[in-house]
Each structure stands twice: as C-alpha cells, then as structure tokens.
C-alpha cells in the first residue's frame, strides 16, 4: 500500500480539554478509519504558536490542521459574528449546527476564509455573567461592574452594557477573580469549570439563548488538502461540515451540562434573567444586528435572509430534541 499521508494538527488548548479529547481526537480517528489509514492525523504535543497565530500557521503550512476562534481576528471574519450575537441558541449543539447550515448556504460568497480550507465550524453554549460577590439582576447592575472579557462580541457587549471591562487573557481569570481585581467574567458554563473558576464564583446570571456565544473553525492548509487523493478528499469532506458542527457542538454542550452540575454542587446561585433584564439587554444590543446587516450588505450577502434562516434552523433544532 501507499505510504499514508500524515497531517499535523496543532491545538492551543491542553489535550485534556474536552474539545480535544472528546471531539478533535476522536474525529481524527474517524478520518483515519474512514480512509483505511491512508490519512493519519498527528497531534503536536504542544501548540505550534499562540492561539492567534494558528490561522497563519495553517495558511503557511507550518501545520496542516488547527482550530481558530473567530473572535481573535477583528476585521477579518466580520460576517461570522451572525452566530455569536446575543440570544444565539440554548445549546452548543443547536448553535453549531444552525451556524454551519447558514454559513454553508449564505456566507461562502463573502470569501472570508480565503487562503485556507474551512472544514467546519462549531460554537460554545450560552454565555452568561459569573460574579463573585455582586449579583446581576437588573440592567443597572452592569453599570461599572468590573468584568474580565475577551475580544470580539464580548468587547461590543461590554461597551453596550457600560461595564468596566478588563480585557485580559482567559488563563488569568482565576487570579483576577480570586484576588478581587474583577467582580466577574463572561463565559459559557464549560469555561467556568475548565478554568477552575467554579470555586470562586458565587452567582451566575443566565439568559435564554445566551448573552453571547463564540464560534470556532476547523481549518486546513489548502496545499495539504490538495495533496490528498480525490477519494480521500471526498471522505474527509463527508466527515466535515455538519458532522463537525454536531460533534464539536455536542462535546462543548455535554461539558456545559456537566459544568452546570458542578456549579450547583458548589452552591453557586443561578439567576434566570428577568423579562425586564432581557428586554433591556435586547434594546442596548439592537445595534449589533444592524451593524452586521450593513457588513453583510457591503460584502454582497443577503443578510436578512441569512439571519432568518439561522433563526429558523435554531428553532427547528431546539424544538426537535
């Protein structure tokens, strides 16, 4: 038989993280099995570069495969924001699958992934506000609240909600919270557990559909993709797209469920956002959608149709299960 094509995968989170152990590694095994060993995916022991650098690392062929968070590239993936706006889904899996379907149908033409081969996207579950002492129950509670945030939609949200945003790398969250430098963080449940914040946060404010979300892409070097035989390319693609969305979304969603259980065990008070709070957040963040629609128009995309499709898909997926 021919020598197998060996592909290198670089993951910038520990291999013990559920996304790697429950999604990326099993997915790589599926690919290997489906191609009868002709395509083998090796994971590097440690990431090839910092999280942001992974886009370039794949484009330049330093590694063949990686995942990226779209929030790290302001200005490059403007249209991918459609799936991370406030109220974008109740579970990671529904957000992921709906996002892929909409991307596949409406957004390919914007060509935001030029220079790389996008295999699939998946997202995390509903993002919420997790605080140590201060409770968030009304829109006024956000005023001047010190929150650690990342970039992207979280930064937009911080501005719209008038919080005192402290933009620091995610691994610093534990220290910032435990020493009281910040009052809280914006995260999905899974991240609260994986950054070991479950012992320091006391309150969680959760929103139906989430306050925000984040979407990742599994990307591949174009040259590496072209090197595969035509048959293997077909097999790889059949295991990509919606398959990746389901698999990644499920891994992240399962972790959310487990994390919520841990939070309850640590007697974290979980507050469901009141209708008034939801309405106030909707009002303050209405301009996000407007901005997205304008960006879509500028890139020649039918924005209203795409958003309607995304929401219809969400509804269908969430009622179906």
């Amino acid at each position: 038989a021919d020598k197998p094509v060996e592909l290198t995968f670089s993951a910038w989170i520990p291999h013990t993280h559920i996304l790697v152990s429950n999604f990326m590694m099993p997915w790589a095994k599926e690919v290997e099995k489906a191609t009868e060993g002709r395509v083998k995916i090796n994971f590097l022991t440690k990431p090839v570069t910092n999280p942001v650098g992974h886009l370039d690392a794949v484009r330049n062929g330093v590694v063949d495969l990686a995942f990226i968070s779209y929030s790290y590239y302001p200005g490059r993936f403007d249209l991918m924001k459609f799936a991370v706006l406030p109220f974008s889904g109740n579970t990671a899996e529904s957000t992921s699958v709906a996002a892929w379907r909409t991307y596949d149908k409406y957004l390919q033409g914007a060509n935001e992934h030029r220079g790389i081969k996008l295999l699939g996207i998946y997202g995390h579950g509903p993002g919420g506000v997790y605080t140590t002492e201060k409770e968030v129950k009304t829109i006024e509670d956000f005023d001047g609240l010190k929150l650690r945030i990342g970039g992207g939609i979280q930064a937009d949200l911080a501005k719209a909600l008038n919080v005192n945003a402290v933009v620091k790398p995610a691994p610093e969250s534990y220290e910032l919270l435990s020493t009281g430098v910040v009052d809280g963080v914006l995260f999905p449940p899974e991240s609260i557990a994986s950054f070991r914040l479950d012992t320091v946060v006391k309150h969680a404010t959760v929103f139906p559909g989430g306050l925000y979300a984040d979407v990742h892409g599994i990307i591949m070097n174009q040259g590496a993709f072209d090197r595969l035989s035509e048959g293997d390319r077909k097999i790889l693609l059949s295991l990509s797209g919606e398959h990746i969305a389901r698999m990644g979304g499920k891994a992240w969603g399962d972790a959310d469920v487990a994390a919520m259980k841990t939070l309850k065990e640590h007697s974290v008070a979980i507050h469901q956002a009141s209708p008034e709070l939801i309405a106030a957040v909707k009002e303050r963040t209405a301009q996000f959608e407007q901005a997205w629609l304008e960006a879509a128009k500028a890139k020649g995309i039918d924005g209203p149709a795409a958003l309607a499709d995304f929401r219809a898909n969400l509804k269908e997926l969430e009622s179906g299960s």
């Binding site: 370039d56 590239y73 302001p74 200005g75 490059r76 970039g151 992207g152 930064a155 933009v167």
Partner: peptide, 17 residues
C-alpha cells in the same frame, strides 16, 4: 513577510482597532 501579511489582511487590535 509577517508585516506584509498583517498589512494585506488589515490585522488590528481588539479594542482600539
């Protein structure tokens, strides 16, 4: 080359752009 790529893709910072 990194600088040229940053220019081509219009890379910018998160908060201040």
């Amino acid at each position: 080359s990194q600088a040229e790529s940053a220019l081509e893709y219009g890379d910018q910072t998160t908060m201040l752009g």
